[in-house]
């Protein structure tokens, strides 16, 4: 089938999409945006978090056809050209990146959190990030990055 959508501001028309295909597969294999990661295929790890019409979702749990005519923003769409988004910069500066497989999903989730709440408390940060698994960092420097980005945004 055919799916038309806007990804990171660019209109796309994709043919030959399978009916049961996920938005994640479409983004990675058809649009050529592999930034969103495929780690669990069941919404448990958050590595594929993207914006679907301004809402943060797991792209692996959205059927590609459900994204028809929608606007998708992926991790690749957050920076302003060469200029990193403050959340991205905070991840780099806080040392919140190790293997980096969870990083794209976390960057989008934190971007979303800070868009909704400018100064989240500890429990709030933990709750908001509970759907993003990281196996390397023990999350501590990711929390540092959230606080750093929140401070910068204020």
């Amino acid at each position: 089938m055919r799916v038309d959508l806007e990804v990171n501001g660019v209109r796309r028309s994709l043919d030959g999409v399978r009916e049961g295909e996920s938005l994640l597969h479409l983004l990675r294999e058809r649009v050529g945006l592999p930034g969103s990661k495929n780690a669990c295929e069941q919404g448990e790890c958050g590595s594929c978090t993207v914006y679907l019409d301004e809402t943060a979702v797991c792209a692996c749990l959205v059927a590609a056809g459900q994204a028809q005519d929608s606007r998708v923003v992926t991790v690749e769409g957050l920076a302003d050209g060469a200029e990193l988004h403050p959340v991205q910069r905070a991840f780099v500066e806080a040392g919140a990146v190790q293997c980096g497989f969870c990083t794209p999903g976390l960057v989008v989730t934190v971007h979303d959190l800070l868009a909704r709440t400018s100064d989240p408390g500890e429990a709030e940060i933990r709750e908001a990030l509970a759907g993003n698994l990281c196996r390397c960092t023990g999350y501590e420097k990711i929390f540092d990055a959230v606080r750093l980005a929140a401070g910068e945004a204020r």
Partner: peptide, 24 residues
């Protein structure tokens, strides 16, 4: 039927289910 996809897509991604069609 598929709405949020949080159950339906897991079955599809894992190849555990093969519905005849999806109704969004």
């Amino acid at each position: 039927l598929i709405a949020g996809g949080t159950d339906v897509m897991v079955g599809l991604n894992f190849g555990h289910t093969s519905p005849a069609a999806l109704l969004d």
